[in-house]
Design a protein around this nucleic acid. Structure first.
Lengths: 269, 269
DNA sequence: TTGCTCCTCACGTCACGTGAGGTGGC
DNA sequence: TTGCTCCTCACGTCACGTGAGGTGGC
């Protein structure tokens, strides 16, 4: 016969746990001294404790364990319960994989934003863009409705997105209601499905400027950009591109004063 | 301003949850009627509720959320917390993968046992065994110590085990203390490491019998087997094999009366 | 009056852990 | 006496859910 402390050492279960198991009726001491209340366990209980510990590792609830101990004495009797347990675990696995995926995306988005912010110059610059694969939805309406397009692309290509969202603007003037634009995101790969088209966005020479602040103040940056283009005598082609380097985050909207948008106009060489 | 019921419909949080969030200080109603105690939420609270729901999905504890809401207003501020959350989730993922692995093994062991039991004939039979890859430990001592060998192999080759454990007996007589035997399991693949050797166990012609019952009654089955072999005039070779088709399970020991062991003796052709 | 929405308060969930205060035998 | 092991009892954890009993306005 072992005292509760000795039995705890043998089984690796804490004394508190052993007392609790008695209360729950899963592991009853072999005898209890009615003078002192001391619990004593005999050698046979070690095996039962092992079974309980095993089942707890598999996350069986204590009530289920109590029932199993009453009714089963062979692994074979447990098949159904084990299978339902497995299904439960598989469910949790799926769930955690999903949340980890979301976390990965949020984190990498933040990191990309950070590095982009750190080397941001607000000067008008000329550069050459590489062609890139994009997934996009062509839309008509208000520019502010672009977010719906981003959500649509996000839902379909979640894992394959590899850069910040962009709006391609096909009008050559500002339109309030019937604007013609495309909500798109760079992707690593993917197939067109329904409204979302996957295609290569051509590269080329462009003039760009970083706009810092809320979207409705973009006009100022367009002015600087167009002034520069006129001075140089360049000829532009549509679509014009707005790259949302830092906009509302996935969790917080953030302060629009800190939004960062790159406006790119393609020019003929 | 929305009543708690309306706000619940908008945000997808239950009324009970909203009241609880107030108590915890994470989402305070915009005003509370001091006559009726009715809570009212304005449109700005919708955004906060969204943030809370998002963070809860990522399994942030409420206390952490309360702090985040007090101190952050940009995803960027959250990077460190998100990363530690990701580490936590990754941990749980690992854990669940492991338990799922264990469950898979237990379940497939039970299923194999079942099918083996269902077509078990207790007659002495002759058959041809295919060669198989095994991982085993050669041991000296009592046959009953074989279990330690199985555990050793199990720890090292867990995932690659593809059949029931076997004992190879190199003695030609029963030895109580200084027996020479090998605890081994069929594996799909693997490399020898330390005491555990991986090698091919040759196939060939054999005479076998199924023994039902506790191990210490194997003598009876050996008797039948050897009688048969003598009658036929066969010549046997070592090692003799005991295949533990059904023995103690991974959870319950089960009743030894139902143990099923196949005894195989290889014969020269 | 009935039905509806809202309220508070107390308790339950799950598997223990914490901590206070006390006992019995060496 | 001190130190050790054991005991009981009450409360805490975490994010809510359940349910009883009641209110106020249409």
């Amino acid at each position: 016969m072992f005292s509760i402390g000795e039995f705890s050492t043998i089984t690796g279960l804490t004394v508190k746990t052993l007392r609790f198991y008695q209360e729950e009726g899963v592991l009853i001491p072999s005898c209890v001294d009615d003078q002192t209340g001391y619990r004593y366990y005999d050698a046979g209980k070690v095996e039962i404790a092992r079974v309980i510990a095993q089942l707890r590792k598999l996350e069986f609830p204590l009530a289920a364990i109590a029932e199993i101990l009453r009714e089963c004495d062979d692994d074979n009797d447990l098949l159904a319960q084990l299978e339902s347990r497995r299904a439960g675990i598989a469910d949790k696995l799926r769930q955690y994989k999903e949340t980890k995926g979301t976390l990965d995306q949020i984190i990498s988005a933040i990191q990309k934003t950070r590095s982009a912010m750190s080397d941001a110059s607000l000067q008008v610059t000329e550069k050459t863009l590489e062609p890139m694969l994009i997934a996009g939805v062509r839309m008509r309406g208000k520019y502010s409705e672009c977010g719906q397009g981003f959500r649509q692309v996000g839902r379909m290509f979640g894992r394959h997105i590899c850069g910040p969202p962009m709006m391609l603007i096909y009008d050559t003037e500002f339109k309030e209601n019937d604007a013609d634009f495309e909500a798109c995101m760079p992707v690593r790969k993917g197939e067109s499905t329904g409204e979302v088209q996957v295609r290569e966005l051509p590269g080329g020479r462009c003039v760009s400027v970083l706009h810092k602040g809320p979207y409705d103040e973009c006009g100022r940056s367009y002015e600087r950009l167009l002034t520069f283009i006129k001075e140089k005598g360049y000829e532009t082609t549509t679509p014009c591109r707005e790259v949302y380097i830092k906009g509302p985050g996935m969790i917080f909207k953030g302060n629009p004063k800190n939004y960062l948008t790159e406006i790119q106009m393609m020019v003929r060489e």
